[in-house]
Write a protein that binds this DNA or RNA. Sequence first.
DNA 1: TGAATTTGACCCTG
DNA 2: CAGGGTCAAATTCA
Length: 361
Amino acid sequence: MESMEGNGGGRLVVTELSHIKELVRQLEGHLGGSGSPDLCKHLASQIFSVTERSIGMIRSGHFDGHRKRSAAAVAAGDLDSATPSPLSDVSDLPFKATKKRKTSTEKKRHQIRVSSTGGVENPPVDDGHSWRKYGQKEILGAKHPRGYYRCTHRHSQGCMATKQVQRTDEDATVFDVIYHGEHTCVHKAVAAGAGKPETETDTNAAAESRLHDLSSGLTVKIEGLTAPPQQQQGGGGWNAMPPFCLSSPVSGLAPPDQHNPFSAPSTPENRLAAAASSAASPATSDSMAAAPFHQAAAGGGDEAWRDAELQEVVSALVAATTTTATAQPAPATAMVDADLSALDAFEFDPGFTIDITSFFA
DNA sequence: TGAATTTGACCCTG
DNA sequence: CAGGGTCAAATTCA
Ligand SMILES: [Zn+2]
């Protein structure tokens, strides 16, 4: 872990720059006239922050990955009340947990913010998984209620993934989605791309094309930590600087169906969303999510974090594209999972991600 | 009719 | 006790 030399860092920066490039391209497109000014502003701030980040990387020359300020440490959490089976409801009552480190069954909390452009009544984006709503609660201090969802295959396959969806106070078209756990369910046969054989020879080409029309008229950003170096506020829209954002002009988006505008069964976008949601940053405490501003230090530690996030995102992207390209029946989550564990161990292979830059070129 | 949502009660934690 | 998460009966949906 200490052997991260400048080379890898350089690639990282390159990746960042590619990201910037892409953002600029998008901004360019939006400036053409058909884009909303808000979006342009958003993109601009995005570019700014990413640039800032890159500069920080270059200046610091290296990044030693040490999350010093995770503060919360929260970990906490939940006792393992997840014992769905009545079979074993014995034996876990009085346990003063001095330390419940669930080594293998860790609950992860991934918060992403999803904005769907389109109608006023916009359904949350379909992330490629089927969810069943099991509750809804009014949250104190929040304008909109929070919906509780769990994977449809909870019983059938024991998939314990859950998510919470809630509209942002400021912008009702923006949703905060918090994912818990990971999907262990196996994906059904892909109906949409069924009759779509793809040669494995030019997977890269396929992936590239996928990547190109990968984005639709929605914005997905992963929110790890708060506290951007700059405190841009309220122009119109978001006030938090997201580490990552994907958006593009509304190319032929599916016309509003009767109910679900995003009824596409398995589109690249969905895959991306799913993958992205799987690859979020760890250690986000409740209090953090509730506190948009707070803390001001913009140390190098943050950069390390950013890196990690970026790498995660990139790997997610790669996973998504690969998955889409090969259309493999094997669970996509498996790949992502593997990547995640690698990341967890701080053993990410830089060489793996690098090819993505060529996609953006 | 089976599956998914709605919705208030219930439960757990701080 | 309040706030947030889950259960489950009733209800709607396909
Ligand atoms: Zn699942």
